[in-house]
Design a protein around this nucleic acid. Structure first.
Lengths: 216, 216
DNA sequence: GGATGTGAAGTATTTCACAGCC
DNA sequence: GGCTGTGAAATACTTCACATCC
């Protein structure tokens, strides 16, 4: 990371850095589709994404041959294939843990649903907040976590609790069967092999930019 | 990414990926200092950060020789040097543009100040919000941007406006002399050479994790 | 004895460049 | 003619391993 430094190797032989670029391709393709554009070349895609056309072709080549030589890629088809590869062609149920100011902003953000995620449950550590209605969801107690994760088939959680509770909450989520976590607290929680975690850490991002401001 | 994928090369010959790790070292060193630990080895630091000791030593070697052979690093001294290198030994004035739910969460987050940043101004595009008091700041109109950026010596901005306004706001900020931008909208705004930008993009992070959940 | 700092070796990732196909 | 798909080359980054020093 900056905030999300990409880690190494998986059993699959596709470099993790390649996977991390696919969602950006998906986003651009969605836009092109909305604009009624039907065919796009790696050249054009590269311009929009500020990456080299060769990189795009190489990235895609890990998964198959999606293009038409001499023409480019059919936007609709490539989009469909990438969504399939990433597993975002179906919708994932997501829990939000922590309903403070940040949690509320997350719960009311409309951008998750169109992109393959449904926020289906909200939890808070503080019983003062439990029962409150936020973003169309009734805030639950952590005691109900296990049960609701199972019932709603939740495999992804967004954690926005104070830093001192974060590792505990993450452990609890993993114990309940959650497989991927997006963490907003300024630490890097430890998780066992097989669990994916990404940290959203604006302070780290800012601190790595100041180096370059100084340089001038 | 995932949200902050690290880009390439600068005039300085220190790899960007190295710079992106320094803030994490700073964070751990701060913790060690708080815990009263005075000396630390690359081995110990590596365990806490889940990176190899060799990487830490190599990273630091780009900037000088900070350790004592046979002993390790003096926590206080290394921390001070890293803060100096990153330019976070002094405090940067930061503007927040966009005072919606997310902007409010950012403005009330107490974690920026201890780490080298002071939120000194808030702006919104919507005149309904202008004049309101949020996080101890009075929300300003975008008309005042130029003047306040100059007066407050603001070189960093956090942008949390709706996606359709983002490129415009970024352009405006750059025109006013802002040098680094942290963007929360789900696009990658284009900026000219010399301006640093990082995107906080939770949806991209989530979408790159689903690939691995599926894999199992 | 123990840990740093660093060339050299080993990997990973990106880019080149061109054969092959539409 | 134009653009993909891909080995090969180039570059970037990480890890090794050891001389050096406290």
């Amino acid at each position: 990371m900056a905030s999300n430094p990409v880690t190494r190797q998986t059993r699959s032989d596709v470099p993790e850095v390649v996977i991390s670029r696919l969602p950006q391709y998906v986003r651009i393709l969605n836009r092109l589709l909305d604009d009624g554009i039907q065919v796009v070349s790696s050249q054009q895609l590269g311009e929009k994404l500020q990456v080299t056309p060769a990189q795009i072709r190489k990235d895609l080549s890990y998964f198959g041959r999606f293009g038409k030589q001499g023409r480019g890629y059919i936007v609709k088809d490539l989009l469909e294939r990438l969504r399939q590869i990433l597993g975002i062609n179906t919708s994932w149920n997501v829990a939000v843990v922590g309903v403070g100011r940040l949690g509320r902003a997350i719960l009311s953000y409309p951008g998750f649903n169109p992109d393959g995620f449904r926020l289906v449950a909200a939890f808070d550590l503080n019983n003062q907040v439990v029962g409150e209605e936020v973003g169309g969801l009734s805030v639950r107690s952590m005691d109900e976590l296990d049960q609701i994760v199972a019932k709603e088939k939740i495999s992804i959680a967004i954690v926005a609790v104070p830093v001192e509770f974060t590792q505990n909450v993450v452990d609890h989520l993993v114990a309940c069967g959650v497989k991927a976590i997006l963490n907003y607290a300024p630490i890097a929680p430890q998780v066992r092999e097989g669990i994916r975690i990404r940290n959203i850490d604006p302070v780290l991002s800012l601190q790595s930019m100041t180096y370059y401001i100084n340089e001038e």
